[in-house]
Amino acid sequence: MAKTAIERVRMARANNRPTGKDYIDNLFEGFFELHGDRQFGDDPAIVGGVAFLEGRPVTVVAIEKGHGVRERMSRNFGAPNPEGYRKAMRLMRQAEKFGRPVVCFVDTSGAYCGIEAEERGQGEAIAQSITTMLSLRVPALSLLIGEGGSGGALALAAGDEVWMLENAIYSVISPEGCASILWKDASRAADAAESLRLTAEDALGFGVVERVIPEKELGRESFYQSLKEALSGKITELAALDPDERLQKRAERFRKIGAY
């Protein structure tokens, strides 16, 4: 039987779900992590670096939630601060310099909302991250692997294609937030989840993502193997395009969403 929207939300948030680092470890070889935004600090909620994908060097950026309470706390529950997005931008520009494709893994309930995050320009960081990704002259792919929470997720999902796990969600606001604003009742999250159309099938239908990855074998070797082949194939395909053509297609991808 088909799962309800709120069941999908729970699955997307589940503790035992593979996180960004699991994908990095299983899809790439020789990942070398690069730290810091060179301006303020190093955000533990965003992991980035260089690795090989079937022998091809790529830049990898992942929002990392962590497993278990302690690691989740140390990762700020996968809620990035501005310096996280600035680190991502630094690594993407570096990828561009060396002609490396960029692969992003997105899994966040949203960019961190805190006093210092605002002081350091959370809005500006997200805006610049979107623009940076839209302007990258190398291929850029994003995978929504769990929660795709609003601008904090979009900041790393403005590339040539966005893929989404079967039970990942992508939404402008959390169902709880939506219910409490619209109906002053956070307990109506299930209704909000339904109304927001936040499932992978919805996103595919709206042209917001290009591909939905089945989760039947989620976390198993076969899962990563087929995902690796799909990623590698897509990057080969994107890399064959002329950069200007690729950039134009990327722009059109967003230009047509909600057009009249």
């Binding site: 805006a127 601008g151 927001l196 936040l198 969403i257 909600g258």
Partner: peptide
Amino acid sequence: GIISLMQMAK
């Protein structure tokens, strides 16, 4: 919903 989020990128 998600259509409004995409307007940020657009």
